[in-house]
Design a protein around this nucleic acid. Sequence first.
DNA 1: GCCGTTTTCGGCCCGACTGTTTTCAGTCG
Length: 583
Amino acid sequence: MPPYTGWIAADLPDNRAIAEAFQLLGDLLQLEGADRHRVLAYHRAATRAREEARPLAELALQGRATEVADIGTTLQAKIVELAETGRIAALETARERTPEGLVEVAGLRGLGPKRAMAAHETLGVASLRDLGAALHDGRLADVPGFGKGTIESIGEQLAERAMRAAAPGGERIPLGRGLLIARRLSRELAEAPGVISVDIAGSLRRGRESAHDVDLVASEEHPGAAAAALGASPGSVGDDGVTHARAQAGDGTWVELIAGPAESHGNRLQHATGSAAHNVRLRERAVRLGLSVSQHGIVDADGVRHVHADEAGVYRALGLPDIPPELREDRGEIEAALRDELPQLVRLEDLRGDVHIHTDWSDGRDSLEDMVVAARARGYAYVAISDHSPRLRMARGLDERRLRAQWEAIADVRERHPDITILRACEVDIVAEGLDFEDDVLAELDFVTASLHSGFALSGRELTERVLRAIRSPHVDSIGHPTGRMLGKRDAAPLDIGAIAEAAATTGTALEINGQLNRLDLDADNARTALDAGATLILSSDAHSVMGLDFVENSVLVARRAGAPPDRILNATADLGGRLLAP
DNA sequence: GCCGTTTTCGGCCCGACTGTTTTCAGTCG
């Protein structure tokens, strides 16, 4: 069977549809007060379906969906039912019993299944709209469990939702900006009196694309030192000296801090890094070992609490190797760790060069020589000067005449900096006719990155064809920011990543993980697809200034989330995959 | 409903916080 490419037979439900059905069924059962473990089973299966790369409907029809964790024979049968009849009877009857609109009601902060159902049973509330009406009439106060504070909070949330509906905006913090804030705050905090060390935790540490707040973990000499430095009052101080604090940074970002003694720093860091699902799995395993895990330490069967100064100690106590944060998503990493099969993930220090950078010859801010010096200072063995091709007028793309002039400038800089290999390169546009330079020009370049910068109105099929043509060009070494997405501005082009990854694997063309804050393209899921297909990745900063070279750190984070080892990263090789040896 | 280096049945994470309560259930991460 060919690898899954995202396009499957039109009459089968895709994994997203399966996930939605299980999610809703779980939500409705939860409202009805079903056994919470049964509810959890549906929600877990929904998460699994969302993340599974293979088409579950096909698997289920072959009787193989139970190979996927959290999917047993009952859920497999429901997937088959959905595939064959287009519906799941259990879901339809649950919908008849319980209004679907209550799911949203239960989703409000401070509400949950119990209070949502109380409102339904007392006042007949079946939707957010009903809830708003009951609020205005003053009837909500009649519902058991609805006090003054809860009702006030509901009012605020409904008003907020109405505002957001009028002006939608992402309230989650994108990874790049989140990391900048987190690094600044943790640096400042670490220098405060009484604070010993600070680590970034939460989804930022795991490299998720966005976070809802910044999580920090500190060790301190006395309770409250770190919270005070953050300008927050510590909440309650536990008998082991652990405090929680919450504060708002200057730009409105919420920061959550857990601080305590250095000897239990590892327990707090492990706890606050998550993910929630990973921690649940970890604690389940601990229970089987007769242990109880929390942010305060690990309690053994005799009730004795053990603390750990570093995270590795926590995992060691559970019989596991230190699992990299980027893998802690309950996607089988604990099982892999038990089998000693965790991938060796690429690290920033594995990178030997950056082959996608711009200078002031096109739309970069710094000079060619400044960029080379900065690359050298980072310890790179090579750097590729890859300014834009002529079609990108607004970026002052180079035509052939200016490109050749740049080669002379490169020759000059090479003489002054013999300790780094400077490649003649180009980020050439992928255009309707093929590429934005003739083959004879491309053949003279040391490295060619081909990128989509236009044509995003075309169909996924047409754009995929364009990219495939670029991949098959013997002159193209890598595909830059393959899907062309701009976070918050433009969605990823609907490319057939499976087909692109397969072609790239065949030709040896690298697929880029672009580290620009608004790109992060490929994303971790697509990068994993590329790796599964056998393709090589390349990690690039796409720097437009000396400072911009740092963006490659974001690429590394995304690559690690995808499970990429250094030997699958083109610019982690000393000779750039043999290209530096060519005459 | 899932799952098994103690189990094919009987378990299935932990603690903080909140607001509503008269001692704690529900919610959150």
